[in-house]
Amino acid sequence: MKVFGITGWKNTGKTTLTERLVAEMVRRGLTVSTVKHAHHDTDIDQPGRDSHRHRLAGAVQVVLASPLRWALMTELRGAPEPPLSDLLARFDPCDLVLVEGYKSSPHPKIETHRAATGRDPLAASNPSIRAIARDAPVDHPLPQFDLDDVSAIATFILSEVSL
């Protein structure tokens, strides 16, 4: 299982690029899984549903299963957030895991950058960033791709992870 990340400042197109890369990689015949890191409180469960009630009652883990999908929810209950490596260990075998977020983790990444943010690229201080997907050229020596050139970005990523 190979791992490659998509990182960048808020509102620079990380999720859109991740979604488009998944579709492109699947089109190329690969099995792809994803990790989405959120810095804020998030809940995939719905208040009032049975599984939500189980969690509120104190269950540490709840599996929600249906004929179409299943999800395992784990309540940290004050424990520290697990490292990315622990989460990756839970994945079923696949060709590639695309990780959105986790700026400081050491896995290789591409940075999304938009000129409108007015921010310098993260790549200036993050050696795990291998390229920049941007809406306008930036002053940085790393390879750069247009944010919309998903095919070229996918080819770059697959080359980086030897797939």
Rank of each mutant, 00 (worst) to 15 (best):
D45L: 04
R114D: 00
P141R: 00
N11P: 12
D135I: 01
K36I: 02
T112V: 14
T117W: 12
V60N: 02
A38R: 15
L147Y: 13
L147P: 10
G118S: 05
K10S: 15
G101S: 06
K103C: 00
F91D: 00
P47G: 14
A131T: 07
K2G: 10
V26N: 05
L142M: 05
V97G: 08
K36D: 01
H54Q: 09
K103L: 05
F4N: 02
A131V: 04
L64A: 15
A71L: 13
C94V: 10
G13C: 07
K2P: 09
V97F: 04
S33T: 15
F91V: 03
L122V: 02
R69I: 07
I44A: 14
N11W: 14
Q46S: 13
L64P: 03
R49I: 04
R55Q: 02
A124S: 12
I129Y: 07
S51M: 08
T42Y: 15
L98N: 12
L76F: 02
V97M: 06
I153Q: 01
I110K: 08
K109Q: 12
L158I: 09
R49S: 15
E81V: 03
G78V: 00
H107E: 09
L142H: 04
L147A: 11
S33R: 14
M73L: 14
N126M: 11
H54R: 09
P143E: 06
R69L: 10
P93M: 10
L84S: 05
L68M: 13
G13V: 02
S105I: 12
H54A: 11
P80H: 01
P143H: 04
F145S: 04
G118N: 06
T155K: 15
V97Y: 05
V3G: 01
S66L: 03
R28C: 06
V161G: 06
V97Q: 07
R28F: 09
M1D: 07
T18Q: 13
R53S: 11
S33F: 11
T12H: 04
R49Q: 13
G101F: 00
P127R: 00
H37G: 04
S85A: 14
G29R: 08
I44H: 12
D146T: 12
L64S: 14
K36Q: 01
L142R: 08
V138K: 06
A133M: 02
P67G: 04
E75H: 02
V99R: 01
T117Y: 10
L142S: 04
L163S: 07
S105E: 10
L56P: 02
L64R: 08
L21V: 03
G8F: 03
M1K: 06
N126K: 12
F91Q: 00
F156S: 03
A57C: 08
F91L: 08
F156G: 01
L87S: 04
D139N: 07
